[in-house]
Design a protein around this nucleic acid. Structure first.
Length: 370
DNA sequence: AATTCGTGGAA
DNA sequence: TTTCCAAGAAT
């Protein structure tokens, strides 16, 4: 990696901030420096593109304009607002942190990185972002943009996928930050990382800091940042049960932990969990599924396959393939042993559903038309 | 330290 | 269709 002289550091700061002053993106959360606004935007923006976040942010602020409103929010309404944004623990941690601020800090925001990081859902990056942008503290905010941008500028060869690399970058960036405008500096790096220095289709030739970009000057930009590849999603097979009576559908509440926790979904049974002999026919599998449903939930069902391709949905680390089955069940059956309930179709619009649940519903509707 | 947490966009 | 990526945190 390269070292910069004090003069070069100052020149970089001036060049970057001048560009930012003239070209910064006009974003809803940049209208002021209210820590509540900065915070909500930062949480929404985790692993999520700006254009996706904007409408969610606007709706969120109308419904929960203050930290007190969020602390007192109905969780079902909160999840409905977050519906489709993914990583739902972000929303739940958001409310926990709001309650921490109201109860532990009497509604007054803590301003140090240390205190901010003790709030639910706020880690090293978000604490740095809030402290620098809302409270003008001279601290780095090392996100994916900062890692990529400085890896290229300084030809840093550390693997940015490794957790410990963040600390190295924090120490480097601390020395490059201006003390007077830390928030603008951090945001300028993000804007740079989202434009001229993006991961793909970057345009270093026209970048405002191209003369500070060592990897570009050396013609080795393709080598930066150094980043190990992620594993590909593992295939998981499910059977999805469509059980209805009139306009009521049987939904299962997912466990309190794990993927899509606490959401209402059509009952899902993992394919691997169904015990069958070798060379079992498709019909044998369905009968085994019925037997398992009976022994697990004391519910007698009769299933038949619904035509059409399985529903597929890919998460970061799992690729689900769901075979839809229509099942008959007496609507007076005892649901005592089943972790779910009947939900009327007319209530669907009030409830937050996951993307994969919506896909199952749409496939079912599609199938009924034929 | 390595996994686990969603979804949508782009090539 | 597949792959990678997008203002990370919790465990």
């Amino acid at each position: 990696m390269v070292e910069w002289t004090p003069e070069k550091i100052v020149a970089f700061q001036e060049t970057l901030l001048k560009w930012y002053d003239n070209n910064k993106r006009n974003l809803p959360w940049r209208r002021d420096h209210d820590p509540y606004h900065i915070w909500i935007s930062e949480i929404m923006l985790q692993q999520t593109q700006v254009q996706t976040v904007i409408p969610y942010y606007e709706r969120f602020m109308k419904l929960f304009p203050t930290v007190q409103a969020l602390a007192n929010a109905d969780e079902a309404i909160l999840m409905k607002v977050w519906e489709g944004l993914g990583y739902y623990s972000r929303a739940r941690n958001l409310q926990k942190a709001a309650q921490q601020i109201v109860n532990d800090y009497n509604g007054q925001w803590p301003t140090t990185v240390k205190e901010l990081q003790e709030l639910s859902g706020i880690g090293p990056y978000t604490a740095g972002a809030i402290a620098s942008i809302a409270f003008n503290k001279p601290v780095p905010a090392v996100d994916g943009n900062a890692l990529r941008v400085f890896a290229r500028l300084l030809e840093i060869n550390e693997d940015i996928a490794k957790p410990q690399t963040r600390k190295l970058f924090e120490n480097i960036i601390k020395k490059l930050m201006p003390k007077n405008r830390p928030g603008d500096f951090n945001q300028a790096i993000m804007d740079l990382g989202a434009s001229y220095m993006s991961a793909k289709n970057y345009d270093s030739e026209n970048s405002p800091v191209k003369l500070f970009n060592q990897a570009y000057l050396d013609g080795v930009e393709d080598n930066y940042p150094v980043k190990t590849k992620k594993k590909r999603p593992i295939p998981v097979n499910y059977f999805g049960l469509l059980i209805h009576s009139q306009d009521d559908y049987l939904f299962e509440r997912r466990p309190n932990s794990g993927i899509l926790s606490r959401f209402w979904m059509f009952p899902l049974i993992k394919g691997d969990d169904i015990q069958t002999k070798k060379d079992a026919s498709e019909d044998d599998v369905l009968r085994a599924l019925e037997a398992q449903f009976l022994s697990t939930y004391q519910l007698e069902i009769h299933v038949k396959k619904i035509g059409g391709r399985p529903v597929t949905h890919t998460f970061t680390h799992q690729k689900w393939q769901i075979t839809l089955l229509e099942a008959e069940l007496n609507n007076s059956s005892d649901l005592s042993y089943f972790p779910g309930k009947w939900i009327s179709e007319s209530d669907f619009r009030e409830i937050a559903f996951t993307k994969v649940q919506t896909k199952m519903w749409e496939r079912y509707q599609q199938q009924k038309e034929q």
